[in-house]
């Protein structure tokens, strides 16, 4: 989406049932996202905000700093005070933007705090297509007759398909689009043999039985679709993890990080919120601070290697 603006929305909430707990130094916490209102990350954060507010006993506000595919939000966050008042909602986009352009601040200028969720990526095809399994799609692609699709040109999804090509030793064409919806049309009308995307994007079609899931591109099967196997189970070593977590300015005090490390597992266990995020097909994926720093630098390194190897960047 190419719109951009900044919206400040104070989430009205009931702080009456605050559980007794260590007090967080800030009463209002702003979560910034590079997603514009109505975009995937924005909807996710706005749904999470009231529950997070309740669990932590603070007011959580969502702020959109769209523009430059995250460059603006990163620059703002790198300059913010590390007082626990503002955080940046991470997705792989901020790593791609850091590597593809030369923004004022890069992902390495931010401190990863904790991870909260993983968005499952799935491979799917039209329900009316003749492909019933991933293997059939790969067989079709042998000899260069396959047509696969990813939502955006330089994205985690594209990277996953390119690696799938390598590991399976096939050479289908990979077409990219202007977003997942655009691609979905081409899966439905069978221009493409197979598409890759977030489960959330294809929910409407999935409910109506018009698309068929072929495989999960992650380490585990999904709880909602226990019959769908992972790519790894089919003998191809491929797994991507689209993360959703928090990052902040460098120099974040230890006790603030600890507060989030305590709060996020509590949030994920909260029954009301659990029902909501399960319905939205999000996988809880808490990663504490120390591991998250490593996770992020590994992710950045792998992405950089992929982009360099394919000649997108130097």
């Amino acid at each position: 989406m190419r719109l951009a603006l900044l919206v400040l929305a104070v989430v009205a909430l009931l702080v009456s049932s605050v559980a007794a707990q260590a007090r967080y130094p800030k009463s209002v916490v702003i979560l910034t996202t590079h997603s514009s209102p109505g975009g995937g990350s924005d909807v996710f954060l706005r749904e999470m905000a009231p529950h997070l507010s309740r669990v932590m006993g603070i007011t959580v506000v969502v702020e959109n700093v769209a523009g430059g595919s995250g460059a603006r939000a990163m620059a703002m966050m790198a300059k913010a005070k590390p007082d626990g008042g503002t955080f940046y909602a991470t997705t792989p986009t901020f790593i791609y933007t850091s590597l593809l352009s030369s923004p004022a601040a890069r992902y390495t200028d931010l401190e990863p705090i904790v991870n909260v969720f993983f968005d499952p990526e799935v491979l799917y095809t039209a329900a009316s297509s003749r492909f019933k399994t991933l293997q059939q799609v790969i067989d079709q692609a042998r000899g260069g007759r396959g047509r696969w699709g990813a939502g955006n040109p330089a994205s985690l999804e594209r990277q996953a398909l390119e690696r799938l090509k390598q590991r399976a030793g096939v050479s289908p064409v990979v077409a990219t689009f202007e977003g997942g919806g655009d691609m979905l049309i081409n899966v439905l009308n069978q221009t493409l043999d197979m598409g890759i995307g977030e489960l959330q994007e294809i929910r409407g079609q999935l409910d109506a039985g018009r698309v068929r899931l072929l495989a999960v591109v992650g380490d585990e099967r999904l709880m909602q679709f226990p019959d769908v196997g992972t790519v790894k189970e089919q003998g191809i070593d491929l797994s991507v993890r689209k993360f959703r977590g928090l990052a902040g300015p460098k120099g974040m005090p230890r006790e603030i990080v600890a507060a989030w490390e305590a709060a996020v597992p509590k949030l994920l266990a909260d029954p009301a919120y659990r029902q909501l995020y399960t319905r939205n097909n999000l996988q809880p994926g808490f990663i504490p601070h120390a591991e998250y720093v490593k996770f992020m630098s590994d992710f950045g390194g792998q992405t950089q290697a992929f982009l360099k190897q394919s000649g997108v960047i130097r």
Partner: peptide, 22 residues
């Protein structure tokens, strides 16, 4: 951003031009 490769074209490295001229 180039629609196929994701390369930045004619942006002079500026993030302001990454999503094109509106």
């Amino acid at each position: 951003t180039d629609p196929v490769t994701g390369l930045s074209r004619f942006t002079f490295g500026s993030p302001d031009l990454l999503s094109g001229v509106p």
